[in-house]
Amino acid sequence: MPSSTFENLSPAKKQHVTTALLNEFSRHTLADAQVARIVADAGIARGAFYKYFADLTDAYKYLYRTAIQDIHVPITRTDHLLSAADYVQQVQEFVTGINGSPYRDLIRLHFKTNEGLVNRPPVEIKIHSAQEWAVMVLIHETIKGCLLDPANATAALDRLRKALQKLL
């Protein structure tokens, strides 16, 4: 978590640091990221970086959480499960949104490499049935596949549609 010092920065300075983090973590894995490049890009002192974040992992978690909050559009939840076609359309729109966002490379590197390097806090998702859980897992794996292998996104979406038709 960023420090209160970071949270109390002016919006412009906070955005400048966040942009420098995005530049670094969109081009380099967490293991290869360097504070030196971030501080040079942000125009801040190295000591300031450590006043804002405990370490690179802390900075990465902050940026990833920020990205997810900016791009995440929840798949529609209603009192009942949707049709396979509705879910596939929502996934396709979500993937298209990520591909058109400044976070595209960050998210791809996250799925490709960084996901295994950071401990994720448990996320509370209210799942009512095994069927809902299966739909959620299929959707998330399809999103990951579409982002990591865009050339086969159509096949991944078709596979999702077929699996959901059998499941629903």
Score class of each variant (00 low, 15 high):
Glu132Met: 09
Leu160Glu: 03
Leu138Thr: 03
Arg161Tyr: 03
Leu138Cys: 12
Ser129Ala: 10
Gly97Pro: 00
Glu93Trp: 03
His140Tyr: 14
Phe111Arg: 00
Ile125Gly: 01
Met136Ile: 08
Leu109Pro: 01
Ser129Pro: 07
Glu124Arg: 09
Asn114Ser: 14
His128Trp: 05
Thr113Ser: 08
Gly100Gln: 14
Val137Lys: 14
Ile139Arg: 02
Arg161Met: 01
Phe94Tyr: 15
Arg159Tyr: 09
Gly145Asp: 15
Val123Leu: 13
Gly116Asp: 08
Phe94Val: 04
Gly116Ser: 13
Leu168Asp: 00
Pro122Met: 09
Pro150Cys: 07
Ile143Asn: 00
Phe94Cys: 05
Arg104Leu: 10
Ala151Val: 13
Ile125Glu: 11
Ala155Cys: 05
Leu147Pro: 04
Leu164Arg: 05
Leu148Ser: 12
Leu138His: 09
Arg108Leu: 01
Glu93Ser: 12
Leu160Phe: 05
His128Phe: 12
Leu138Glu: 07
Pro150Gly: 06
Pro121Asn: 08
His128Arg: 14
Met136Val: 08
Leu164Trp: 02
Asp149Ser: 06
Gln131Asn: 09
Ala134Val: 06
Glu115Gln: 14
Lys112Phe: 06
Pro150Asn: 09
Asp149Asn: 13
Val118Gly: 00
Met136Ser: 13
Gln165Ser: 10
Val137Gln: 15
Ile107Phe: 01
Leu157Arg: 01
Asp105His: 11
Leu109Asn: 14
Ala155His: 12
Lys144Met: 10
Pro122His: 08
Lys144Ala: 10
Leu168Ser: 08
Asp158Pro: 01
Thr154Ile: 07
Asn119Met: 09
Ala153Thr: 07
Lys166Phe: 08
Gly145Cys: 09
Leu117Gly: 01
Thr96Arg: 13
Glu93Lys: 10
Glu93Pro: 00
Phe94Asn: 04
Glu132Phe: 06
Val137Ile: 15
Ala155Pro: 03
Ile125Lys: 06
Lys126Asp: 13
Tyr103Pro: 00
Arg108Phe: 00
Leu168Phe: 11
Lys144His: 06
Leu157Asn: 02
Glu124Ala: 08
Phe111Gly: 04
Asn114His: 06
Lys166His: 11
Leu157Ala: 04
Lys166Asn: 12
Arg104Ser: 05
Asn152Ala: 09
Leu109Phe: 05
Val123His: 10
Gly116Trp: 04
Gly116Cys: 04
Leu160Trp: 02
Ala151Lys: 15
Gln165His: 02
Val135Pro: 00
Val123Trp: 02
Thr113Val: 02
Leu148His: 12
Glu132Lys: 05
Asp149Thr: 11
Leu109Ser: 03
Glu115Trp: 01
Ala163Arg: 08
Val135Ala: 03
Asn152Asp: 05
Ala153Lys: 02
Ser101Pro: 03
Ile143Arg: 00
Ala153Pro: 01
Thr142Cys: 10
Gly100His: 14
Ile125Asn: 03
Ala151Phe: 06
Arg120Asp: 11
Arg161Ser: 03
His128Thr: 12
Arg120Ile: 07
Leu106Glu: 02
Arg159Gly: 02
Leu117Ala: 15
Asn152Val: 00
Asn152Lys: 07
Asn119Tyr: 09
Ile125Arg: 06
Val137Met: 15
Leu164Val: 11
Pro102Phe: 07
Val137Phe: 13
Leu148Ala: 08
Val95Phe: 05
Glu132Gly: 08
Pro121Gly: 07
Ile127Glu: 03
Ala151Tyr: 07
Leu167Phe: 12
Ser101Ile: 05
Leu109His: 12
Ile139Val: 15
